[in-house]
Amino acid sequence: MDWLLRIPATDDFDSVMALNRLDEPLLQHSIREGKTVSELRRHGGAKVIAAAQPIWAEDQIIGSVLIKQSGNRVVTIKHATLSRFVILFLGVFLFLAIAIGVFATRLTYRVTRLQRETEQATTTDGRLLQDYIRSGTRAGDELGNLTRSISSMLQNLGQYTRYLEKLPDTLAHEMHNPLNVVNSSLDYLEYQHKDLVDDKYLNRARSGIFRLRTILTSLTEAANLKEALRNERSDEEHFNLVELVTGCVDGYQLSNPSRAFVNHFPTSPLFIHGTPDRIAQLLDKLIDNAVQFGREQSTIIVRINELPNIIQLSIINDGPSLPRELSERVFDPMVSSSTDARHSHLGLGLYIVREIAEFHGATVIAKNRADANGVEVTVNFTKNR
């Protein structure tokens, strides 16, 4: 404790002997005055407190008693007492600091772990990956209560998410029977009344039935896509992307004679690892999107580029630009910029494109053309996946 408390001085022998020479005058002064006399003596490093008390006998002073105490000794006793107190205080402080440090470290670890597991429970686009928190649910403190509340919330969200995932299949199953009844009734009505073959109201009813079937097909296709992709991991293979896209584009030209398809493909084959049918489905959605949002008699460019580590598949159409507010959300489900009431646009086409691209370890981006006369959607496949 020398660095914290100053060490008191000690009495040296010479100073004590010098102070002892003052005893006789103090005793004489006490006898002469007839009362207690005290004084503080200093000499060098020595400090002495001296007191003389007269001795009375039958109203006469017969002598005097001298009492002396070293001042440095008193300071030394105080120093020892204070040292013990400081040591005790530092010990208690150190114990509390260690206890608080351990508690804070454990609390920080638990909060960080809860944050990490909560963030890992969902994807960046809001999809639920797990519906419970593994650790910390048995703790009896407030953080344990918070963990259980979050876990309960995730379980409720999981149940609701599974309900929503099953809803398209249930809806499609329940809707197909009424649609078949309506469609067969229209067929019978047309058979009984030949003059209704070109009736606009009959054709409008058939168009409505077709749109309903298209909507139901899109919903069930998007709902079952994730599970189907997980089950197709074993079906992946290496295939030539150029050959696959070339065959698909030839079919698109036959089915869309009002559009001109222009190909920009490398002459050498480019192989990627994945499921050819799913890449064809991805391309179908991109072409459907380019046709629906493109101008009549316009050109659709299909381009494949080879970069050092990436193979790019791009679809470029000639039409309206992508609204700025949709540029970041265009691949989210139920997002569409279409305002045409004659066609059903649930915003699931590009969502399916993103799911298939991510299944193949690819990324997909959409941006407006440099001349603002259309949109370019690019899928980036990683080589040697």
Rank of each mutant, 00 (worst) to 15 (best):
W3L: 11
R6Y: 04
A9Y: 00
D11C: 04
F13E: 06
V16A: 10
A18P: 01
N20S: 15
D23V: 08
S30L: 06
R32P: 00
R32E: 05
G34W: 02
T36V: 14
V37M: 09
E39H: 11
K47L: 12
A51M: 08
Q53L: 12
E58N: 13
I61V: 15
G63D: 04
K68M: 10
K68I: 05
G71R: 02
G71F: 05
N72G: 13
R73H: 14
T76L: 07
L82C: 00
L88G: 13
F89S: 01
F95T: 14
F95P: 03
L96Y: 03
V102P: 06
A104Q: 09
Y109I: 08
R110D: 14
L114W: 01
L114A: 03
E119V: 10
Q120S: 08
A121L: 10
T123P: 03
T124L: 14
D125K: 09
R127I: 05
L129M: 00
G136D: 00
G136W: 01
T137D: 05
T137I: 14
R138G: 03
A139N: 01
A139V: 01
E142N: 12
L143M: 06
L143Q: 02
T147A: 01
N156E: 11
G158D: 02
Q159P: 03
R162K: 05
L164Q: 12
L171M: 12
L171N: 07
A172V: 05
E174F: 08
E174V: 07
M175E: 00
P178C: 09
L179P: 00
N180G: 15
V181Y: 07
S184D: 10
D187V: 15
Q192M: 13
H193F: 11
I209A: 12
T214G: 12
L216E: 07
T220L: 07
E221L: 12
A223T: 08
K226A: 11
E227Y: 04
A228I: 11
A228N: 12
N231M: 11
R233W: 11
R233T: 11
E236A: 13
E237S: 14
F239K: 06
L241I: 13
L244C: 10
V245A: 04
C248E: 13
L254W: 03
R259Q: 09
A260Q: 13
F261V: 07
N263V: 14
H264P: 08
H264W: 13
S268T: 09
P269H: 15
P269T: 14
P269L: 15
L270P: 11
L270M: 14
G274D: 01
R278M: 10
Q281W: 08
L282F: 13
L282P: 04
L282Q: 08
K285L: 05
L286C: 08
L286G: 02
I287Q: 03
N289K: 04
G294P: 09
S298P: 01
S298G: 06
I300P: 01
I300Q: 02
V302K: 00
R303Y: 04
L307H: 10
P308D: 10
N309Y: 11
I311P: 00
I311N: 00
Q312G: 05
L313P: 13
S314T: 10
D318G: 04
S321C: 07
R324W: 11
E328N: 15
P333F: 04
V335I: 14
S337T: 11
T339I: 14
A341M: 12
V353S: 02
F359R: 02
I365P: 01
K367N: 11
A370E: 10
G374F: 03
T378G: 09
V379C: 08
K383V: 09
